[in-house]
C-alpha cells in the first residue's frame, strides 16, 4: 500500500483548480504550502492507483514540476523498532 510524498511546483497566482482537485481527493493530504511549492502525500491501496494519481498530478495544468521526496519504506521502521 504505497505512501508517497512530493513537492508540486506551481505558480502562486494560478493554482486554484489544483488546490480544489487536491482537496477533493481523499487519498491526498496537503501540507503547509511554501511560496510556489505544495507538499503532498498520496496514500493509495495499490501501485496502479498510485501510478494513476501521480500521472494525473504530473499532467495537471497547474503543476509545473513534481519532485518526489519520500516513498513508503514502512518495514524500515518495523524492522528496527
Amino acid at each position: 500500500m504505497p505512501i508517497v510524498s512530493a513537492v508540486l511546483y506551481t505558480r502562486e497566482d494560478k493554482r486554484t483548480d489544483l488546490m480544489k482537485d487536491l482537496r477533493a481527493d481523499t487519498r491526498i493530504d496537503v501540507g503547509t504550502i511554501w511560496a510556489d511549492r505544495v507538499p503532498v502525500v498520496v496514500d493509495t491501496p495499490d501501485r496502479t492507483q498510485d501510478k494513476a494519481v501521480w500521472r494525473r498530478l504530473e499532467h495537471h495544468p497547474d503543476v509545473l514540476r513534481v519532485e518526489l521526496v519520500f516513498a513508503d519504506f514502512s518495514d524500515v521502521h518495523q524492522e528496527v523498532s
Binding site: 505512501i3 510524498s5 513537492v7 501540507g31 504550502i33 511554501w34 511549492r37 507538499p39 502525500v41 521526496v69
Partner: peptide, 12 residues
C-alpha cells in the same frame, strides 16, 4: 512522508 515533503518545500 508529509513532513519530508514539507521540509523539502520549505528548504527549497
Amino acid at each position: 512522508a508529509l513532513t519530508a515533503a514539507t521540509t523539502a518545500a520549505s528548504t527549497a
